[in-house]
Amino acid sequence: MKQLLIYEQPLALNRLTHRHLRIKPVPTNYAFARGLNSVPLTTTEFAPAARNYPIVFTGDADKASMPAVLLGLLRDDNLFVEDDSQWAAQAYVPAFLRRYPFVVANQETTGEAAAAAFTVCVDMPVVTQSDDGIKLFEDSGENAPALEHALGFLAEYQRAAERTQAFMQQLRDSKLLVTKTIRVERAGTEPHTLNGFSIVDEEKLQKLGGKALEKLSRTGALGLIYAHLMSLGNVSLLSARFDTRSAALKH
C-alpha cells in the first residue's frame, strides 16, 4: 500500500520560498478518497475503527507492514464516501485521511526526534496565491494557525506510526499472521477476490506459550490483537453496505 495514496503532487514547504503561499479552503468532504478500498491505520485508532471496519494487515504474513481498514469489497471502491462526498454518518474517519492536504516527507530518522522535526508537504492541487486562501505563514515568516495545527497533528501521527511499527514487529516475530483472501460473490456479477493482506490466526494465538502471551499482554499488543479479531466480523457490514448501494443504483 502506497503511503501517498491520496496525494497528487506533494510540495515540501519552505518558510522562505513559500512565505506568501496559501491553500484553498478545503471543503469538509472526502471525494479524494472515493477510489480507496483500504487505508493505513495506526494502533491508537484500533478501538474506534473496530466498530465500523475490518482491520487487516497489508502484505503477506511474513512481510506484513502496516494495519489497514477495509473500506470496500471492490478494487478502487470506497463504500463509506456518500453521494454528496461526505463520510458515512457515525463512521470513524481514519487519521490518514484527516491529515489531508498535509503529509510528512519521507525521512531517514525515526523516534521522538523525527516526530519533533520533519519536513511538511502540502498537496499542490490545494495550493493558491489568491487572497481568499488560508495562510500557511505569517508575513513575519512564523507559522500561521493552519500550519501550526497541521504540525501538531502530523507530529502526533508520526509518533503513533512509530508505535505501530513496533507492534507490527511483534506480530511478525510471533509468527501469528496468516495470508488471507476474501472471495466476493454477488448475484448477477462475476466473483472476485480481495487479497494482499493478512490476519491473525486464532489457532496460532491459542497455542502461544505463557511467556509469549505475557509479553504480548505487557506491551499492549494482545489487546490490539483481540480488537483486530473482533473487527473481522465487520466484513458482513461491508457486504450489507454494498448490497444497499447496489439496490439504490437499480432504482
Rank of each mutant, 00 (worst) to 15 (best):
F153N: 01
F153E: 10
F153R: 04
L154D: 10
L154M: 08
L154Y: 00
L154F: 00
L154R: 09
A155F: 08
A155P: 04
A155I: 00
E156R: 01
E156T: 11
E156F: 12
E156A: 13
Y157F: 05
Y157K: 13
Q158L: 15
Q158V: 03
Q158E: 14
Q158D: 12
Q158F: 01
R159G: 07
A160F: 05
A160D: 09
A160S: 11
A161S: 02
A161D: 04
A161M: 02
A161H: 00
E162T: 01
R163Y: 08
R163C: 01
R163A: 10
T164D: 05
Q165L: 06
A166R: 15
A166T: 09
A166H: 06
A166L: 13
A166Y: 00
A166C: 02
F167M: 06
F167C: 03
F167W: 06
F167S: 03
M168H: 10
M168D: 12
M168R: 06
Q169H: 13
Q170T: 12
Q170N: 13
Q170M: 09
Q170I: 05
Q170D: 14
Q170Y: 02
L171R: 05
L171E: 11
R172A: 08
R172I: 12
R172K: 14
S174E: 13
S174Q: 14
S174P: 03
K175E: 12
K175I: 03
L176G: 02
L176A: 06
L177S: 02
T179L: 10
T179E: 10
T179I: 04
T179C: 05
T179D: 11
T179Y: 03
T179P: 01
T179K: 09
T179S: 15
K180P: 00
K180G: 01
K180E: 08
T181P: 02
T181I: 15
T181S: 12
T181C: 07
I182T: 14
I182Y: 11
I182D: 08
R183S: 09
R183H: 12
V184F: 11
V184Q: 11
E185Q: 15
E185G: 08
E185L: 13
R186A: 14
R186I: 15
A187W: 00
G188T: 02
G188S: 09
G188H: 06
T189W: 00
T189K: 14
T189V: 08
T189R: 15
E190I: 02
